[in-house]
Nucleic acid binder design. Structure first.
Lengths: 110, 110
DNA sequence: TGCGTATTTGCATCTTTGGCCAATTATACG
DNA sequence: CGTATAATTGGCCAAAGATGCAAATACGCA
């Protein structure tokens, strides 16, 4: 595999990594929550999600690893916040896919 | 769980489904290819991806199931094409996440 | 009808994820 | 210091995902 092919492979793998980090209901809810609240600690987010704190912590770690959120420790608490502003437009695209599907289903039923 | 909570749950699950369909290097490459070519058959896409045709067929099925592509059969061949136009803006958001990370790494190294 | 090509589907296998519980680390507070 | 709270990490298991090979389908064509 030559240099250009490697670069292309890396491009798709990096994109996939970011998308994979977003591709889970709990993590999408975390992102939504952080978009609304500006920042939040793990304990608060744990209540919102309703899973074990360890689970939420791992979800946040994935988002962080993908570069979607960043964290800062204050005392015993760790605060997370979004690092990216463009997520709204991203989700509006996702929604347009969803909407398109719903329209299709309606067409099939009628 | 009440009606509103169910709706919220469904919202995140639906979004996650679309994102999950995109969250794979091969499927991202397929999307890129279809964006460039307007439409293509499975056999051509198989060459591009370089996996077994059955694998590529399954990847395409996932994209279709998520509402990202649609397909049409002509003779023995099945042609796939994108159903959504907004993917460019979606990827530019993903890229901004990636770029942000790269900048961070550079900062750490220097 | 029978052959060849394009595509999908049925296993079998291997890897990755998600989740909880328990243990560990880090920090605040008495 | 000892204890309590916040968060992360390790271990484990069940569920989901990826992939190739082989078999089944679906067409086109002679």
């Amino acid at each position: 595999m030559n240099r250009a092919e490697k670069a292309e492979k890396a491009k798709y793998e990096t994109r996939a990594k970011v998308l994979k980090a977003l591709a889970h209901p709990a993590r999408l809810k975390l992102v939504d929550e952080l978009a609304a609240k500006e920042e939040a600690c793990v304990c608060d987010l744990t209540e919102v999600i309703g899973s074990d704190m360890s689970t939420v912590s791992r979800h946040l770690a994935q988002l962080k690893n993908a570069g979607i959120v960043e964290s800062e420790k204050h005392g015993q608490m760790v605060f997370y916040r979004l690092r990216v502003k463009c997520l709204t437009s991203l989700f509006s695209c996702i929604e347009s896919v969803v909407k398109c599907q719903i329209d299709d289903q309606r067409r099939v039923l009628s």
